[in-house]
Simulated scan of single mutants.
Amino acid sequence: MSVFNPQKLSVKLIPPTTFSQPVEGRKYTLTHSDITAELFLDIGYVYNYKSIDPKMRDEVLATWKKDSHGRLYLVGKAYVDGGEFSQKVADTRFKIFTKEMATALNGIVYGDRPFYVHYPFLVDAPIFIHYLSTYPQYRQVAFYGTPRQYLNHSIKQPDFPHHQT
């Protein structure tokens, strides 16, 4: 599995997004370079579709949503296939996504650290990833813990977020 390296993460806020707004509907577009191993995170009211490679489709998209009880959770999606790949290729893509998802979530959560200072209760919100596929065995939803575990893992401080004084 890839190891998350904060020095290889570039973060861009898409205006008018700030590190405190929006909350519900806040969207993350995470892409990467296979050559340099860099991660690119765009945070906005909309996904940054221009950053997505239409042939590779190896991005992770995520957004904050409310459940039926008004609780926020982070839900993401990974495009395994839409019928254009063989089952063998879809299987490979699914395995790569599941192997690399923790690194992707590290990038998303770590890249938006100031957001959690404004909304510390969200460090304990659940994270779900939808794997999108025409093959039933890959079309699934997986629980990936909470932002807290990615923040702790990324910065080695068990009680993050710290409030700035």
Rank of each mutant, 00 (worst) to 15 (best):
5 N>P: 02
71 R>P: 00
91 D>I: 01
9 L>P: 00
27 K>N: 02
17 T>F: 05
114 P>C: 09
139 R>C: 14
153 H>M: 14
91 D>Q: 14
19 F>C: 09
119 Y>K: 00
60 V>N: 04
20 S>A: 13
161 P>Q: 06
92 T>G: 07
7 Q>N: 13
57 R>W: 09
136 P>A: 15
48 N>F: 02
142 A>Y: 08
46 V>T: 14
35 I>S: 08
80 V>M: 01
134 T>H: 11
55 K>W: 10
42 D>M: 03
1 M>P: 11
33 S>L: 05
1 M>N: 14
6 P>D: 06
132 L>V: 15
94 F>T: 00
138 Y>V: 03
43 I>V: 12
45 Y>T: 08
62 A>R: 03
101 M>C: 12
8 K>N: 10
60 V>W: 00
59 E>C: 04
54 P>M: 08
85 F>Y: 15
120 P>T: 10
130 H>L: 14
102 A>W: 01
59 E>D: 12
126 P>M: 09
70 G>W: 03
60 V>L: 11
139 R>W: 13
151 L>Q: 00
111 G>A: 08
95 K>I: 11
100 E>S: 10
107 G>Q: 04
64 W>L: 07
139 R>G: 06
147 P>C: 09
2 S>K: 10
145 G>A: 12
143 F>D: 15
117 V>R: 04
124 D>W: 13
58 D>G: 08
28 Y>C: 00
57 R>L: 10
128 F>E: 11
53 D>P: 02
54 P>H: 09
66 K>Q: 14
66 K>A: 12
147 P>H: 07
155 I>T: 06
47 Y>N: 00
80 V>F: 02
88 K>E: 15
128 F>D: 10
36 T>Y: 04
91 D>C: 10
83 G>E: 10
13 L>W: 10
30 L>S: 00
131 Y>N: 04
88 K>C: 11
48 N>Q: 12
136 P>E: 15
86 S>F: 09
158 P>F: 12
142 A>Q: 13
29 T>A: 06
9 L>V: 08
155 I>P: 02
144 Y>V: 05
137 Q>I: 13
56 M>D: 12
25 G>M: 07
118 H>M: 08
151 L>H: 01
98 T>K: 07
4 F>T: 01
8 K>C: 06
119 Y>C: 03
97 F>M: 03
104 A>T: 03
106 N>I: 04
30 L>P: 01
83 G>P: 00
38 E>Q: 10
95 K>P: 01
67 D>P: 01
50 K>W: 12
144 Y>E: 11
10 S>L: 12
103 T>F: 04
16 P>R: 04
120 P>E: 07
